[in-house]
Design a protein around this nucleic acid. Structure first.
Lengths: 141, 141
DNA sequence: ACCTTTGGGTTACCAAAAGTAACTATTGGC
DNA sequence: GCCAATAGTTACTTTTGGTAACCCAAAGGT
């Protein structure tokens, strides 16, 4: 007979993870995590949220300059997606040349907290990950 | 002259966001967030981490059954990626039929915390997002 | 009068990634 | 001698991500 010893903290984290992955049968066949990750889990959404979260509001090209490497089209697509999910607002001013301001909604602000956690994790553990990758690359060669 | 009033908490969050998006010039042209999100920001990685985090360890097909909708190939690809980044371990037992166990590493466990935050956010705000989407869909029609 | 610039896009096109279906290896049991 | 079970791989298709070029309207230069 095997006895597994799990400390209290680990058990708690496991329970939390289990809870999240549980699919509620009343939702339309997808758990919330799936659903939300599909939107914000792409290459640019979280970065856009971080940049918009770092200030009051940003114009289209301001944002474009700050998010290094993003193309005009991808920024448009990303922002429209975030807007559709109620995470950012898009305010068009009827001027020439046009002016469009983007800002986080309250919902977007609330997401920012969780995203910052993830960002901090990334910053802290980047060296460990770089090392792991190195090991893998060397092992493959 | 315009005066902007920002409460202390908002200012703190903004500073945190700003810090994360800052690109350290000594890294190879990418900030850590970019780098890590490229790996874990795909459709299946975070879900795999959540499932692996909800228990001790899982076999390939156990995991496959739990992650609804994932294909054999995508699970392989995802797990190999996570393994390469040192987030999961892959243990092969020389048996027939073969047995392969996947488990989170310590690094993976540490990420689990941040992921659970995000998952909780998703669970809490899923209704608000669904509502925003509905509004958008109706407005477009 | 004409050309350029400016800001925020869109369209047409192409490459890369995700996804699907069928195939493989191994061997104990029938 | 054939089938089932596990953990994949390979070949192929579809979807998505990404690039480059174009559009609009008015202001400013020459």
């Amino acid at each position: 007979m095997e006895v597994t010893v799990v400390d209290a903290q680990t058990a708690e984290v496991r329970a939390a993870a289990k809870k999240i992955i549980t699919v509620p049968p009343d939702s339309f066949a997808l758990c919330p995590v799936r659903d939300i990750l599909d939107r914000i889990g792409d290459k640019w959404s979280l970065l856009s949220i971080l940049h918009l979260g770092s200030t009051e509001s940003l114009r289209f090209n301001e944002l474009r300059k700050r998010i290094d490497g993003i193309s005009q089209r991808m920024l448009t697509v990303t922002l429209r997606g975030l807007e559709a999910d109620g995470l950012v607002t898009r305010t068009v001013y009827a001027e020439v040349p046009p002016r469009v301001e983007y800002a986080l909604t309250e919902l977007g602000q609330s997401l920012l907290g969780a995203v910052i956690q993830l960002g901090n994790w990334a910053a802290v553990h980047a060296p460990a990950i770089a090392e792991a990758r190195q090991r893998m690359t060397l092992a493959a060669a």
